[in-house]
């Protein structure tokens, strides 16, 4: 048996699952978004669903919220994750703390959302602590941080979880080689801040950027956190798509699928950007 055939056979079960559930699902979404819905007697091909969702103010609000939540969460996670990795390296004990980070990564977002809810909800730990400390007259005086219009609760959950993801990536990149580059920079007259600004951060930038693109793609498309911590309106694109999908009026199914396809396009763009960054990173490390 040729090695190629052997590899293909070994991969076949996984490829079959991916083919049926992912490619099949995406294909079905694309078809339905283009009006192919025999269930409700529609089989005319059109871009009407796209026109309708792109003209819908609810979708505009949803797009704005999705962009705000994903960009702020990603930027915060990138900055905090990088800072955390640098701090951990400086404190030493990198391996032990890295284990702690990995443990945090294993916590599902669903659990994370519930935890953030318990912490930030109007009757949550934060409000009660502020009340007990006399900082506010009643728990209602604490500004709403969950089910709020801005999406602070969602941002807080994603920032918390994804900070550790970025920190793990950054810590892995902060190996011996970066230390050596910093040593060389110091012998070339670079002070501690100059080393950070001119060497460490630029060297860390590609892996952190690659991790950030993954975070951005995930946050843009994820469902459970905005569903639990966000308002019913406006809500993020994925929640909006799911709400329309579950509408008793089956004619709104193509709009749901159009939204799903738009989300998939956004994440595909993010994935392409990721591959480009990783490719550049591989060339640099040659």
């Amino acid at each position: 048996m040729s090695p190629r055939l052997r590899i293909a056979l070994l991969l076949a079960p996984a490829l079959l699952v991916v083919g049926v559930f992912v490619v099949g699902g995406v294909l079905q979404a694309v078809l339905q978004s283009l009006g192919f819905a025999p269930v409700v007697g529609e089989s005319q091909w059109s871009l009407d669903a796209y026109r309708r969702v792109l003209a819908d103010p609810a979708v505009h609000a949803s797009l704005l919220l999705t962009a705000r939540v994903s960009l702020i969460s990603t930027a915060a996670a990138a900055v905090l994750g990088t800072a955390l990795a640098l701090l951990v390296r400086r404190l030493g004990g990198r391996r032990r703390l890295a284990v702690l980070f990995h443990g945090t990564l294993a916590v599902p977002h669903l659990v994370g959302a519930l935890a953030i809810g318990l912490l930030l909800a109007p009757s949550g730990l934060l409000s009660r602590a502020a009340y007990r400390l006399g900082l506010v007259d009643s728990v209602q005086d604490v500004p709403a941080l969950t089910q709020d219009a801005f999406g602070w609760g969602i941002i807080a959950e994603y920032t918390w979880k994804e900070t550790f993801f970025v920190a793990v990536v950054a810590l892995a990149a902060l190996g011996r080689r970066v230390s050596d580059l910093e040593d060389v920079a110091s012998t070339l007259g670079a002070s501690r801040w100059q080393r950070l600004r001119e060497v460490t951060l630029p060297v860390l930038a590609p892996p952190v950027a690659a991790a950030s693109v993954l975070v951005l793609a995930f946050v843009t498309a994820s469902y459970e956190v905005p569903r639990l911590l966000g308002r019913p309106y406006p809500t993020t694109l994925s929640v909006e798509a799911f709400q329309r999908y579950r509408d008793i009026d089956l004619t709104s199914r193509p709009e749901a699928m159009a939204l799903a396809v738009l989300v998939a396009l956004l994440t595909t763009l993010a994935a392409l950007a990721y591959l480009r960054l990783v490719g550049g990173l591989a060339r640099r490390s040659l």
Binding site: R177, D180, L181, V184, A185, E198, V199, P202, V203, A205, R284, S285
Partner: peptide, 9 residues
């Protein structure tokens, strides 16, 4: 040093 350790960026 043994390795050139040029700044890759």
């Amino acid at each position: 040093l043994q390795k050139p350790l040029l700044f890759p960026h």
